[in-house]
């Protein structure tokens, strides 16, 4: 059963389909790391992104790139609404984390309900056809969706880490994630940083949902199901460890796809929950993957402040 051909195909398809899982997990992990929010409302951003793209491409028959911009716009609008009308207000009221989490759950269910009212709940895709052209590379079937998905995901990851590593706003984001109160004492406007983080997360989600919706069928509650994966990858990768989250999303994607070669297929869906259960009970800090310091280096608020003053 485990021939090199099968292993190569499973690895390739897993790599390609992990693209959107990585983007969802990275967005979730980023908001958790910097804003300190367990943002289940990301599902609402995903739903808005998909239906914006579907409206433009699937219904209005506009070109794919307009659908992509629509997905980004849909996700951004939800992110801004959630941050400005939700998170910011709750922070001012010093609401408890549990209350904030419940708020994000309600937002995700609310948007799914609205989507169902407007679009119905029949499964659909951004493009009318489910088929992508396939090229055989050796013995591995590579679909026309795979390469753009992998390349755009790599580009998105690179941009996020370059942002965090080399830009002032990125360093401020890292400083806020370390200690938001201290960062503010040194002149970093944390509310602005929280907003920027939500915008970055929205861009990742918009791209991820465009990729997902152009390959698989989506219903209004699909995003809520997908969030389980993002949460699992974030917890198992180590809370706040962005590189760990990415690696875990990739590993979980491969395990999910490849597990059918080793275990009865009925247990495939169970695996994710089993890993999540084990991670929460036995590894509450996640699997200790080495932090990718060169890309997400820890930056003190003092350093950012000093740099600000120097440049001023």
């Amino acid at each position: 059963m485990l021939t090199p051909i099968i292993i190569a195909q499973v690895l390739w398809t897993s790599l390609a389909t992990s693209s959107y899982y990585i983007l969802f997990s990275l967005a979730f992990s980023l908001v958790l790391k910097i804003n300190g929010a367990f943002n289940f409302a990301q599902a609402a951003m995903m739903t808005a992104a998909f239906y914006a793209a579907y409206t433009l491409v699937g219904i209005a028959h506009l070109p794919a790139w307009i659908g992509f911009l629509g997905a980004i716009a849909g996700s951004l609008v939800l992110a801004l609404l959630t941050e400005l009308l939700g998170f910011r207000l709750l922070r001012r009221r010093r609401s408890e984390q549990l209350f904030v989490f419940i708020f994000t759950l309600i937002v995700s269910e609310f948007v799914a309900f609205i989507a169902m009212l407007i679009f119905g709940s029949y499964p659909t895709t951004i493009f009318s056809s489910l088929l992508w052209p396939v090229t055989l590379v050796g013995t591995v079937a590579v679909s026309g969706w795979d390469i753009p998905a992998i390349l755009s995901t790599i580009a998105a990851i690179a941009i996020v880490f370059l942002l965090l590593r080399f830009t002032r706003i990125g360093q401020a984001m890292t400083a806020v994630s370390d200690n938001a109160e201290l960062a503010e004492l040194y002149g970093i406007k944390r509310e602005r940083i929280f907003l920027v983080t939500m915008i970055v997360a929205a861009l990742l989600v918009g791209l991820g949902m465009f990729l997902y919706g152009s390959r698989a069928q989506v219903q209004p509650n699909t995003a809520i199901d997908l969030m389980i994966f993002a949460i699992a990858a974030t917890i198992m990768g180590g809370l706040g460890n962005l590189a760990g989250t990415i690696v875990m999303a990739l590993v979980l994607g491969i395990i999910q796809n490849g597990s059918v070669l080793f275990i009865p297929s009925e247990w495939q869906g169970f695996l994710l929950y089993a890993f999540l259960f084990a991670a929460i009970v036995f590894l509450p800090n996640g699997i200790r993957l080495p932090e990718w310091r060169r890309m997400s280096r820890r930056v003190s608020a003092e350093a950012v402040s000093a740099q600000n003053k120097q440049e001023a």
Partner: peptide
């Protein structure tokens, strides 16, 4: 003879077994 999860969105592994 194989079942799949109702929430599955990719069946590559399953289908490769079928192909084999």
């Amino acid at each position: 003879y194989a079942g799949y999860d109702p929430n599955a969105s990719d069946w590559t592994g399953l289908l490769l077994k079928v192909r084999a």
